[in-house]
Design a protein around this nucleic acid. Structure first.
Lengths: 154, 154
DNA sequence: TCGAATTCGTTGGTGTACTGACGATAGCCG
DNA sequence: CGGCTATCGTCAGTACACCAACGAATTCGA
């Protein structure tokens, strides 16, 4: 009766999109390294020695979640974690050789997977796809962190 | 060096989109009922007495996950679960009065939230947004369930 | 009709993902 | 220098989300 059409609900679509991606990742990229784990590796390739919290910020994970992801990657020997001698609160992260190799290997596979994933869209549509999602996600994130970036208004 | 730009990775974007939605849902819709739980309620409003597995299929959740969601909704008294007398394997689901009331209340709030969430996009862009995501998700799901729907080819 | 295959729900294991609280450390200020 | 505050990482709790394996019930086939 009063039921709603979920296919017009962005949250529902976002969940389904992520699930679809998860499945494809599992079959085409890796069954051991997950997409968030790859994001962490990738961040540390770009910026070695980064602080744990900052890595979380880069990939979009809160402190609790990033701690678990880091812990798993450390257990597999893909990264090293050292206490910052300058600031005892921080943990500094750095990929091991194995971590670098793994990142390189997965980068290739990830690119292939992205092609398959986006194959139903034309080139222009793909650009649009990125643009629209990014705008919605950024705006919603902005609602969470109010004020602050008002440079010269107060 | 060989680091990749994650903003061009659909999986990364999908995750960020869902996180953004999660936060907005929590503040604008409900802190107790989650989006997947609402999807289940909504399905049972449209089709009362549905089988547990079928509900999972409707909302896009596997048997394990739907079992937990159903269990939580049952614990809160929002639905009833009865063994099918015709087929002892099945659990038939039906909303309670409280479940119906909750669904009605959340439907209003969800509509409001969707407006806020999609506000950064124009009307045409919103249509495109739905269309692009749905096409990608559907295609990826199709890769998972091969063959089968070939009606007259064998 | 009786055994084999299928289906449904459950359980156990892993991996995100969030909040809230807590201890340790560091920075600031009186 | 000694307390206030802020920050970082951890831990506990809750909630998806998947796979694999299992028991119970049904259905199908010889």
């Amino acid at each position: 009766m009063a039921a709603v059409d979920l296919t017009t609900h962005p949250g529902h679509l976002a969940r389904r999109l992520q699930q679809a991606h998860y499945l494809l990742w599992n079959t085409m990229v890796s069954e051991e390294i997950t997409s968030p784990q790859f994001a962490v590796l990738n961040t540390l390739v770009a910026e070695p020695g980064l602080d744990q919290r900052t890595v979380g910020e880069r990939v979009g994970l809160d402190r609790s979640t990033i701690a678990e992801v880091i812990s798993r990657l450390g257990r597999r020997g893909l990264l090293d974690k050292v206490r910052d001698p300058q600031d005892g609160r921080r943990s500094l992260l750095r990929l091991t050789d194995d971590g670098l190799r793994t990142h390189k290997k997965l980068t290739v596979r990830t690119a292939r997977m992205n092609q398959v994933f986006l194959a139903p869209l034309s080139a222009e549509e793909q650009t649009l796809f990125f643009d629209l999602i990014r705008r919605v996600a950024d705006a919603a994130e902005g609602l969470r962190n109010p004020a602050e970036p008002l440079v010269a208004q107060g």
